[in-house]
């Protein structure tokens, strides 16, 4: 009595594949991060005014002196940026040179932020309209990039740095120096 027709089973097959995809996506944590597509490529050309008056400015040419560095994208109005301050201090203590870029910030706010949470940065550039941030492919604050001695972006850390991230970042920095 039953006439088996193959095409009648197609909807069931399609829906099975679809639900399999749903189950797969449900079972793993969602990746919220938008990663920069510039990893492995040289820093974009930029030259920023200093975030604090009287301090040195920041340009991409500052990175091409053979020494690997961390580039920290932060803002005084960003809460996780304050939370990662101890880890930045630990990185500095571990021998890392950290340069920073302050996004959409005023000199007074940056100064107050550094007074409150310490200043591990060798230079801080000001990026009032997020221009460098967009040029870097960064989509939020804080983010930390590992830049090698020739000015090539080697690694991107998204979000605040936790204590367990410190050794990994130091490793990345060491690899970038080799």
């Amino acid at each position: 009595m039953i006439r088996w027709r193959l095409w009648l089973w197609l909807p069931l097959l399609a829906i099975a594949l679809l639900f399999g995809l749903f189950a797969l996506q449900l079972s793993r944590p969602k990746d919220e991060f938008v990663r920069s597509a510039l990893i492995g490529q040289p820093l974009p050309t930029f030259s920023l005014k200093p975030a604090l008056p009287g301090q040195p400015p920041l340009a991409n040419t500052d990175f091409a002196d053979g020494k690997p560095r961390l580039l920290n994208v932060f803002a005084s109005w960003c809460v996780p940026c304050a939370a990662e301050a101890p880890q930045l201090a630990a990185l500095q203590a571990g021998g890392a040179e950290i340069v920073a870029v302050a996004i959409r910030d005023t000199p007074d706010d940056v100064a107050a932020f550094l007074d409150a949470y310490g200043n591990p940065f060798s230079r801080i550039g000001a990026d009032p309209y997020s221009q460098l941030q967009i040029a870097l492919g960064s989509s939020g604050v804080p983010e930390t990039f590992v830049i090698d001695g020739t000015g090539v972006i080697r690694h991107q850390h998204i979000g605040d740095i936790r204590a367990e991230d410190v050794p990994r970042l130091l490793d990345e920095l060491r690899e970038a120096g080799e």
Partner: peptide, 20 residues
């Protein structure tokens, strides 16, 4: 998703068996 699988999967299987 479990409800979806039960209802839609069941209904489509029934459809495949009976529609012919």
């Amino acid at each position: 998703l479990a409800l979806l699988t039960l209802y839609i999967g069941g209904a489509l299987a029934l459809f495949a068996l009976r529609a012919g």
